[in-house]
Computed example of a mutant assay.
Amino acid sequence: MNKGVKKVRKSIAQRKNLRSLNSGKETRKKLTPAFPQEEEKHGYYPIFPDDPQKQQRPVKQQGRLVSSIVLKGVLSVILFFGVAFLYQTDTTFLSKPMTWTSNALTKEFPFARVNQWYQETFGTPMALAPQEKQQTSNEQALALPVNGKVSESFQANGSGIMIAPQDKADIVSLDKGVVIFAGNDRETDKTVIVQHADGSKSTYGYLNSIDVHLYQSVAYNQRLGEFEPNETDKTVFFAIEKDNKYVDPVQVIKVDDVP
């Protein structure tokens, strides 16, 4: 009888020891700090399935993006059909909006005129480009954009004149204004077009390099690019356009050498 009691007590003591060991392992696991993962080191934390708010955030952002794209598309369609409706309708009260829309779609925006108005009103040019010292054409008479002989007249060319510099030279602006084109033209290769405050435009073609960019505000006699004559390219194209008509530069600028 005593032996049986001893065995029972012994088995009970062994179970208690096992329970105490297991509980000690669990507490150690709980107290052991978790090392940060690679994502956490760089500030990115994983999204666990028990956090529904974090799972819903990307879905909400995607929904907002899709809704904004849809809204822009709907507005574009409305604008397109609105313009088409104006042109298809002969109603009298729609004649003024039709005229305004036609002018806005066909006429060039007067950047130089607006820039001049802004400068006269506020005293400084608009921040279309880094501000440079502005000069007025009244300080000095207008001159050709580059020194050289006029090798082809306006009557022979039909739209401008051809100037033949003897050496490498800078191409300068006829007057202050805003650059409305700076790049490769189909007819005159590397070309710069400057819009002036009086609505006129001056064109400089067949350049070797361009030093200005689109919508940059340029001063009187400011460098626009560079030209260096070679075996194939010996002349610079220069034209003045006023009221959608080309004007003979010789009639505007005093030119000594005319063929």
Score class of each variant (00 low, 15 high):
Q37A: 06
D51K: 09
R19S: 08
V59F: 03
R19W: 00
F238R: 04
D211F: 02
F35R: 14
S76C: 01
D233H: 04
L144H: 09
V59I: 08
G177F: 02
V212W: 02
Y45N: 11
P46H: 05
L65Q: 14
V247N: 10
L94M: 10
E226D: 12
N22A: 07
D50A: 08
G43E: 12
P36S: 14
Q155D: 01
F122S: 11
L144C: 08
Q119H: 08
D233L: 06
R9N: 06
A219D: 13
T124S: 12
T203K: 03
A112H: 14
N103H: 07
N115W: 04
K96L: 15
L94I: 05
D211N: 11
K3T: 01
E132A: 07
D90I: 04
Q14V: 01
D243S: 10
V179C: 06
V172Q: 03
N244V: 00
T91K: 14
K190G: 04
Y204W: 09
K254Y: 09
T32D: 06
K10Y: 04
N147H: 09
S20M: 09
T91C: 05
S200Y: 10
F238P: 05
L75I: 13
I171S: 00
G123Q: 08
Q140P: 03
I210V: 15
D211A: 13
G199P: 11
A169T: 15
G158V: 15
E40A: 14
G123T: 10
Q55M: 10
P259M: 10
P49C: 02
T188A: 02
E38F: 13
I47W: 06
L105I: 09
L71W: 14
N244S: 09
A84I: 15
L21Y: 01
P36Y: 09
K29G: 12
F85M: 15
A182R: 02
I193G: 01
T232Q: 15
W117C: 10
Q53S: 10
S76N: 04
G199S: 02
K3L: 03
E108H: 10
L207T: 03
R64G: 08
T121M: 11
S209E: 15
P165W: 01
Q88Y: 15
G82M: 05
I210C: 07
E231S: 14
F111V: 00
P97V: 14
E38G: 11
K190S: 14
D167C: 00
P145E: 11
T27S: 06
V252K: 11
K7I: 08
R64I: 12
F237C: 06
S173C: 02
I161G: 08
S23R: 10
F237V: 00
Q195P: 00
R113V: 01
E228I: 12
K254G: 14
Q166S: 10
V70S: 12
G158S: 04
V150T: 03
Y215L: 13
T203G: 02
